[in-house]
Each structure stands twice: as C-alpha cells, then as structure tokens.
C-alpha cells in the first residue's frame, strides 16, 4: 500500500492517511501484515479494491470486481464500492456479467452484446421498458434468446 501510495503523493502525512484508508477499506486487519500469497482470492480482491479507492480517484474503472468470489466477499466488495461512491463522490465505471450485481450497485447501465451497445438507461427505466422483474431478464429479452 505504501509502495502504491507513493506514486500519488510525496507528502508523508498523505501517504500515511492513504495507507490507513486502504486498511480500513480492505478490512483485512492484522492479516495486512501477512504476505499476499497467503491470501485467499477474496482477500486479494479486497486488497485491490482498497488499492484503487484509497487515493479517492475521480474515476475508478472496475472490471468484474466480484467475479469468482464467494457470497461474503462479494457482498463486502459491493458494499465498499457503493459506500465510496456515495461518501466521496468517486465515479465508478463497472463491467460485470452478473446482472443482479449491476442492478444493485449501478445508477446507469449500458448493456453490451457482441461488442455493440444494445440498451441503456437506469435500472428502473430498463425494467419498465422491457417489462421485466430484473436486469437479467432485461438482458435476455434484449439479446433475444428468451
């Protein structure tokens, strides 16, 4: 974390704050002192999210942040992202194939199929437009397999 923080600021105080922030986001506690190769996949992902958000960027691009994770870790990461976007105004550009996750986290959605944008709008707009219960159903209807 210190290594990463030093790329964003030279100020020792800021660096130490960033590290504290990262420790808080990752929620890894004492395990932060361990080597990362002893971490589980979920712990590594929490570390990466913390690394990305600790500098409070204007924009964070997250590619499937919960892909392959168990329920607990996925929940933790989603909550962190939501909280950060709300509290610090960080804009998040997130890509995911988990439509339920997208529905839960995102304010605006763009559906892409075979490299082309097939629909866009807020989750509510899309659900209403395609008369679906959730975004997964929306996607299936848009793509045309249902």
């Amino acid at each position: 974390m210190e290594f990463m923080a030093k790329f964003y600021t030279k100020d020792e105080k800021d660096i130490s704050e960033m590290i504290k922030e990262a420790a808080r986001i990752s929620g890894l506690g004492e395990r932060l002192k361990d080597k990362t190769n002893t971490y589980s996949k979920g712990m590594k992902r929490r570390l990466l999210v913390a690394r990305a958000l600790m500098s409070k960027p204007k924009l964070a691009i997250l590619d499937e942040p919960t892909g392959g994770l168990d329920v607990i870790h996925s929940y933790y990461i989603r909550e962190t992202i939501r909280k950060y976007a709300r509290e610090y105004g960080v804009m998040i550009l997130l890509s995911s194939r988990d439509m339920l996750e997208v529905e839960h986290i995102c304010d605006r959605i763009v559906l892409i199929n075979k490299g082309k944008v097939v629909a866009e709008g807020t989750p509510r707009e899309l659900k209403e437009k395609f008369e679906s219960k959730n975004l997964e159903e929306v996607f299936v209807k848009v793509v045309g397999f249902a």
Binding site: L48, A52, D63, P65, G67
Partner: peptide, 25 residues
C-alpha cells in the same frame, strides 16, 4: 474473446487465458 465465444462456458482455453482477470483501477 467476447465476440468469438458467446458464453463463458464455451470460452476457449487460450483466449480465456489471454484475457486479464478483473482489473481494478
């Protein structure tokens, strides 16, 4: 890869390997 393989289950080994894991910026 997304264009060539329609679902993750059908994705081809080499291509899937070349595709980076989730990238967090």
């Amino acid at each position: 890869p997304r264009l060539e393989c329609s679902t993750p289950q059908q994705s081809c080994g080499a291509i899937d390997h070349a595709r980076p894991r989730p990238l967090v910026v």
